[in-house]
């Protein structure tokens, strides 16, 4: 697995303990939603960075009041066909105002990176021998965006009418 963050290969500072039966929460860790619910009090005041992973059937509304505790939120794509996390990412960014690292993990096709970036993901855990090249290919394919999303790119509608006003 390679980690790609903001378009660059990055080291992953987190230990993913979300699947551990007897998790060690010391240091920078990524935990599951049930772990958060169970150990919320203990985990809330710590100094080390904390991340949480949400399965595709765990809606972000479940953590919307806890966002200040998380420096990374990981959304899972169990298969490339399961597109729920695209909506979850938008809700985290646009509705709940989450500004930290938003990471995609699971089965991710190169062509999906573009969509993921548009809905607010800025890091990707990718099973690819050349993640940076993938990112560059995916980013260079298209340059027109019809619909507003969470990436603040100017839509065609905006550009059209800006041109007219100028």
């Amino acid at each position: 697995m390679a980690l790609l963050k903001d378009g660059l290969a990055a080291a992953d500072p987190y230990m993913d303990v979300s699947g551990a039966e007897a998790p060690d929460f010391s240091g920078a860790v990524i935990i599951s939603l049930p772990q958060w619910h169970k150990h919320k009090a203990a985990l809330s005041g710590r100094a080390d960075p904390l991340g949480i992973v949400l399965a595709s059937d765990e809606k972000p509304a479940l953590i919307k009041d806890d966002l200040e505790h998380f420096s990374v939120i990981v959304l899972q794509f169990p298969t490339f066909r399961d597109g729920r996390a695209y909506s979850h990412a938008r809700l985290l960014r646009d509705r709940y105002g989450y500004t930290g690292e938003l990471r995609a993990t699971g089965e991710i096709l190169l062509e999906q990176l573009h969509y993921m970036q548009r809905v607010g993901f800025n890091s990707f855990s990718i099973d690819s021998p050349n993640a940076v090249r993938d990112w560059e290919i995916a980013g260079a394919d298209l340059s027109v965006w019809y619909q507003p999303a969470s990436d603040q790119r100017a839509t065609a509608t905006l550009l059209r009418h800006k041109t007219v006003q100028d």
Binding site: D82, Y86, S87, R90, M116, R118, Y146, Q147, A149
Partner: peptide, 14 residues
């Protein structure tokens, strides 16, 4: 047509 074309959120619906 334009809004739905390559919509980033709705390209992998159920």
């Amino acid at each position: 047509r334009q809004w739905s074309t390559l919509h980033p959120e709705f390209s992998f619906l159920p």
